[in-house]
Design a protein around this nucleic acid. Structure first.
Lengths: 336, 336
DNA sequence: CTGTTAGCGCTTTCAA
DNA sequence: TTGAAAGCGCTAACAG
């Protein structure tokens, strides 16, 4: 693999001149430039950005640490990140933590070694020591989708609390009282916020006695299992609120297997939609967040942090995207 | 950010000794090792893999060049790649080409600059100049999901032709004659193979006169649009064969909008399933490929190529994963 | 407009 | 068991 020296020698110039041609920096006569370019083509020279990074201390790479690229919310978000990063001249490394703090720590360590210019992080837990570590190493971070207890970071997320409130209120307005929320892990801010929004709505409508929620996982299996458990109890809910799209799908699967009709026997609503491109017959009433925009916005903030590296730490921002209630069939009509 | 020199100075040893401690290579006395480790912790030293890469000429990074991470087939595949790569000590950079040859070329150039150790490529077109370029630079490549005209590469893919044959034959056995195939781009081997399998099945059952297929895109929009066009013709099909899952979903959407009932008015079958975790009520009859396993296998091959770099080029392999017919409701029952 | 020197952070010789 | 020197490929800083 030819280096800048090989090109220089063959073109009869100094390496720095080749560097100038490659980077379009400084003065190079047209004559020399043409000559050098010819040799570059001839040799198939490709600049080594590793060497460049070693000097410049910039890798033009950012990392996206998410829980699972297989979840549509996150893969669309990843696409938003990728597109925005590419536009800004950055590459993206994606890491899946599966909600494991240990995996997250591993990856952060690895990314630090790789000297990525910045990190977009969906933290596994609300208290993130990763953030402190990154801060210590001056690696900019933007927290996505969730917030953390640590201060001094930018956060970009959807409004879980208000979304959960709206969705619950919608069910209450339909006449539901026994509404069961199947939330995610109790270590994650979105799960907690959704519970909070739900409780608030129940409380505001004097339904405290009916408050019924579970923390589980953000997965189809968790949704299915919790649903089966709930329906083995004496008191059955008239509505189920899935903590995210996978949970809701799990709930629907379980209900179908048990022969329980939606929305006739029980209403179902979901936080997070299923992407349009994957549903030929949209059925679920949902609160919809904009994952692509969230990824894009977070990346833009991260990039600006990277570029203003030396600046006085401008105030950190928390961007909360509004969410949208989309009413479809699964919530059914008025009750009683 | 501290370097190996800072650690060395503070520990009162030479940089190389620190290097030996970090890498567990060569002889270091327990006394010195303990001392050095203490300083490493104290300073929060993190090795710089860029400098290491510059020397070793290995980045421990591979790239996955796919069309779109948003497509469930590819994001599950990406997960298979990620998991296998991590196990082998490699990081993954994911690039989305959106089936554009130009984007693909851009990315290959970029990845070459980054000196990734190997590339997993879903080529946009059947004749790939990227492969020649990579070969010239001694960068191992494994082609995924599709094959190319160029020889001398490893390929890992599903059996499109046989799958399309099975799916078509299944419809024929149900009594269908007017079967329309909505395939993907005519520059892509999977589209071509699926047309070929379809034609062969039609031919084998003396239905040549009913052969009816279209090349389009592998997207929901394409599936929807082609479906609308087909149903505006005088002769309507009794069965639609979607070239991939997105196309099929698009077809189903369009049919629903036109008030055409599936499977009562028209049967629908699909190449590629919708992941279990995303469908609460599996409806489509499909040919199912194993994307996770494909990604995993391709990564394993790539890693072994990377490690045997200097070896005599062992024979290249083409791994073709068998596909599975899953019969569900959308194909309906016997016709006539 | 072009070239020389030096150094980014690490590791592979080769010596001690 | 430890260290000194050299160099991976590139580019600032400073000549010329």
């Amino acid at each position: 693999m030819p280096t800048i020296h090989d090109v220089a020698k063959k073109a009869g110039v100094a390496p720095i001149t080749v560097s100038r041609v490659i980077n379009n920096s400084g003065y190079v006569s047209d004559h020399v430039r043409t000559k050098v370019n010819a040799v570059i083509d001839e040799l198939g020279y490709v600049p080594n950005v590793i060497a460049r990074s070693l000097k410049s201390k910039r890798t033009n790479t950012i990392a996206l640490v998410i829980t699972d690229i297989t979840n549509p919310f996150f893969n669309i978000l990843a696409r938003g990140v990728e597109d925005a990063a590419f536009k800004a001249g950055f590459n993206v490394i994606i890491c899946n933590t599966d909600e494991s703090q240990e995996q997250e720590d591993n990856y952060i360590q690895l990314l630090l070694q790789k000297r990525v210019d910045g990190i977009l992080l969906v933290p596994a837990e609300t208290h993130s020591q990763s953030i402190e570590l990154l801060r210590k190493h001056n690696t900019p971070v933007v927290i996505i989708d969730r917030y953390v207890e640590n201060g001094g970071v930018d956060v970009v997320r959807g409004d879980s609390e208000s979304g959960a409130y709206q969705l619950t209120k919608f069910l209450i307005d339909l006449g539901h009282k026994r509404i069961t929320l199947l939330s995610g892990p109790d270590t994650v801010s979105t799960s907690i916020d959704r519970v909070r929004g739900y409780k608030q709505a129940m409380c505001d409508h004097h339904l405290n006695e009916f408050v019924d929620y579970f923390y589980g996982k953000y997965s189809q299996e968790s949704g299915a299992q919790l649903t089966r458990e709930i329906f083995s109890r004496k008191e059955k809910p008239t509505a189920i609120f899935g903590g995210n799209n996978l949970v809701s799908i799990g709930a629907l699967s379980a209900l179908r297997q048990m022969g329980i009709k939606v929305p006739d026997d029980v209403a179902v609503v979901s936080f997070d939609d299923i992407p349009e491109s994957l549903s030929y017959d949209p059925f679920m009433t949902v609160i919809s967040q904009p994952p692509y925009a969230i990824g894009q916005k977070a990346t833009e903030i991260l990039v600006s942090r990277i570029k203003n590296d030396q600046d006085v730490p401008v105030e950190f921002q928390e961007v909360v995207f509004p969410v949208e209630l989309i009413v479809r069939e699964s919530s059914g009509g008025k009750v009683n």
